[in-house]
Design a protein around this nucleic acid. Sequence first.
DNA 1: GTCTATAATCTGATAGAC
DNA 2: GTCTATCAGATTATAGAC
Lengths: 203, 203
Amino acid sequence: MAPPVTRRPVGHHHGDLRNSLLRASLELVGERGPHGFTLAEASRRAGVSVAAPYKHFADRDALLAELATQGYREQRNRFAAAVKGIEDPADQLASFAAAYVRFAAEEPALFDVTFNAGLDRSRFAEPAAAGDEVARLLLPVARQFASDPDAAFDLLLRIAAAAHGLAVFLRQGLFGVGIAALSDTEEKAARTARAILRQDAGS
Amino acid sequence: MAPPVTRRPVGHHHGDLRNSLLRASLELVGERGPHGFTLAEASRRAGVSVAAPYKHFADRDALLAELATQGYREQRNRFAAAVKGIEDPADQLASFAAAYVRFAAEEPALFDVTFNAGLDRSRFAEPAAAGDEVARLLLPVARQFASDPDAAFDLLLRIAAAAHGLAVFLRQGLFGVGIAALSDTEEKAARTARAILRQDAGS
DNA sequence: GTCTATAATCTGATAGAC
DNA sequence: GTCTATCAGATTATAGAC
């Protein structure tokens, strides 16, 4: 006789549908971008009906907002780790720039969803708040090169923008930048960060 | 008696539907992004049926590819104008960086479609070719700072990436960068370009 | 070249059964 | 909490009339 199989009731989920949906959605965003993401396809991949997600998320955008929040938190964790244990603030910011590129390359879906989801800011405050925490982490480092908070902001913005642009170019294979060129692109980001810092120090 | 009105036959177009469609599509891309663009809505805005575009474009992506090509050509024109008449190559590249930000701010739809349309490269070669011409325009300028072509490419890539990141942040109002901050952002891009050049000159 | 009409899909979201 | 069933709407693309 076959042993009694504890079979999950057909048509029911294993109990963590919320997280399963988030995982499936992230995978989907990675393949098609935030705008190509559909709740129906995410449901299919999670193995549930298209109605099931509505017990866990108000609607499609609410799920995307949750992913965006996760994206910013992952950024903060990665960038915190990137600067931790480094003494020289210039080295810290160079490490941050490299980590920015690495984040985009290793978590393309989270990267996309944080800056390309087109969420209504008045409706979803949580992603923006999580994004602010990323800035809050790094501004004190930039502050060591700047005479006032505005200058620190300018510095951090330019370093992050340079890393962002390189990350986008890398992701799109633009200008001959292949996907195998991750470490090259990290190095370019770090080097550009130092160039920006040197200019400020010397002016 | 009412004067004879030269009435266009109902259901027919004025004869330049192709361009009308491109214009309407560009407007639409500006509002919703390349992924939010639909041929049906573009047809509606051009005042024709949803079947009409298929006499002018093979499909939706073919129209987007045409817009992307236009975008790169507009870039080339703008950047050519930005460096023209300037002698110092450092000034030229700083002017290019500012023009890059201006292009993104003034032609957001063209900007989006060039790097965010997600077109199949193996199917559409024309946009990529038009993009290469942008690089061809600027590489000789960068070459004046670099000892070899690879170094020139690295330089141009980093300057363009910094401008790109700043343009994206500006468009999204990220990090408190408001839409009114165009000239500020242009200046940041130009300043970052000079920082990158100085580093190379001094190393 | 443009239309009407249609096919075939896909989507977001809801109601009610279990 | 999940399902089935369903609605209303949208899209791409084609066929055939004019």
